[in-house]
Structure formats: structure tokens, C-alpha cells
Amino acid sequence: MTQALHWQKSTFSDGGEGNTCVELASSAPTTLHLRESDTPATHLTTTPTPLAHLLRGIKTGALTTPPT
């Protein structure tokens, strides 16, 4: 039996209303899920360490956007 995930919206997500939100859920202490609210059926599953590295890269500007 699969338990439903309890999704939480980011406080930085456009006021928390509408479909412009990043959401996070946890299904176990070391299993995290991320999704965009406009595509709720698609989500990324990860663990705390890689997510922390991603967030650190975003905050410090270490991640760059590829040219279009």
C-alpha cells in the first residue's frame, strides 16, 4: 500500500498561490520528493545531501544557466 505524500510549498513560491510553486515532501527520513505544482504528477526523488548541494549551488550562484 502506498501512502500519500504531504506536499509543502516553498515560502519563496510566488505567494504560495496558483501553479508557480516548488513543493517538497518526505516519505522517509532520507527520502525527499520535489515537484512543481503545475506538473504534480512529475517529481524528483532524492536524499538530503544532494538536495543540500543543489540548494547551496543555487544560493551561491555556482550553478549557471546554459546559453540558449
Rank of each mutant, 00 (worst) to 15 (best):
I58K: 01
T46I: 03
T47C: 08
N19I: 00
L5E: 01
T46Y: 04
T31I: 08
T31W: 01
R35C: 06
A28T: 10
P67M: 07
T2S: 13
L55Y: 03
P40Y: 03
T20F: 11
T20D: 08
M1C: 05
H6V: 11
E23L: 06
I58M: 14
D14L: 09
T46M: 04
V22S: 02
L63P: 12
L24V: 12
D38L: 08
M1H: 07
T65Y: 04
T49V: 15
T65Q: 14
L44P: 12
S37H: 03
R56S: 14
Q8Y: 15
L32C: 05
D14N: 14
S13E: 01
L5P: 08
E23Q: 13
H43N: 09
S13T: 05
H33K: 10
H53F: 07
D14S: 14
L63A: 10
S26I: 00
R35Y: 01
T64E: 15
G15P: 09
E36S: 10
T46H: 06
N19R: 08
T49N: 03
P67Y: 06
K59N: 13
T42C: 12
T39M: 06
L54N: 04
G57H: 08
L24H: 03
Q8R: 08
L51A: 01
L55Q: 09
A52R: 14
T64N: 13
G57T: 07
T49R: 03
P29V: 00
P66C: 06
T31L: 10
H6A: 14
T2L: 12
T39G: 02
P29C: 02
L51W: 15
L5T: 00
G57N: 04
P67A: 14
D14Y: 02
P50E: 01
K59Y: 05
V22Q: 03
I58F: 15
